[in-house]
Design a protein around this nucleic acid. Structure first.
Lengths: 151, 151
DNA sequence: CAAAATTTGTTTACAAAGAAACAATCTCCC
DNA sequence: GGGAGATTGTTTCTTTGTAAACAAATTTTG
């Protein structure tokens, strides 16, 4: 009657089972964990890749806009960009129109690197929903896109 | 032709738009952000609540099992539990059968507190998908549940 | 136009979370 | 029974990210 719980599968979650925030956190952690199993440290980290990818597709984007879109706080963005600059992957330029702002572009080296990295990144992203059917995967991304207000 | 990007909405994401990991991260951050807007610091943080909720429904659960289910690493779990213990919300007991393990239960005080907190927590969790229809919300949770391997 | 308020990025101090090394205990297998 | 190896929790160190205060530039408004 009072048998102790031995494995994670036996844990009673009750209503937490349908809590969006809870499920989302679990899902994200699972993705992240798998990422390092499959991809390893071989290349750019997912966060770095996303930042560089967005700069690649929006050359001269401002730090603040990048942060808003990627939901990265200004304070943190400063550090990320500086780290990328130290690796000679991005260059910063203060535009004439607004001397508070900083416009970011990729160095030629980074363009190559990101295009290369995009191969394994998106391959991984596709494989990540392997326990879903193709339809389910598509539904899931569509729902998430709507949920976060994209497209 | 070379118009600079001024708002986050104009940012070109290209294939990142259907990357599960990316969307999931955005979704989780959005939930977390809204949480503090709506609920404020009033009560337990979402993480604390989840931990306490699971202990409530699985009294005597072991730290390791709790961590596995909630995807919290052992090192971090130690700190969480100690913090909860300092607030007199949980008690730890080393079972006779295995003197390495620690079994966690809620204090009577915590039981009340969690039951109370569950009201706003789940109310919030329900309101969080407000820009989705009821059907979509249900689909989303079902897909997430399948994705993370629950149920 | 000038003072007030806002935006942008940075710095500093701190909180959340993980990695690796460790000690104690337990399990397995000879 | 007794070592080899695995589990469990803790500690220490590092990484990642946030919050708050700040400086400089810009916009708003009286």
């Amino acid at each position: 009657m009072d048998m102790p719980i031995r494995t994670a599968d036996e844990v009673e979650l009750d209503r937490l089972n349908s809590a969006l925030g809870f499920l989302m956190r679990l899902a994200q952690l699972k993705i992240y964990e798998r990422f390092f199993e499959e991809v390893g440290e071989h290349n750019l980290k997912p966060g770095e890749f996303s930042v560089l990818w967005v700069i690649l597709h929006n050359p001269g984007i401002r730090q603040s806009v990048l942060g808003q879109r990627l939901m990265i706080k200004r304070a943190h963005m400063t550090k990320l960009i500086r780290a990328l600059e130290d690796q000679n992957l991005v260059s910063r330029k203060v535009p004439d129109g607004d001397r508070r702002a900083v416009e970011i572009t990729l160095t030629p080296e980074a363009v190559t690197r990101v295009e290369q990295a995009s191969q394994w990144f998106f391959t991984y992203e596709d494989s990540v929903g392997a326990n879903l059917t193709g339809d389910e995967r598509q539904q899931l991304t569509a729902l998430l896109r709507k949920f976060v207000g994209l497209g």
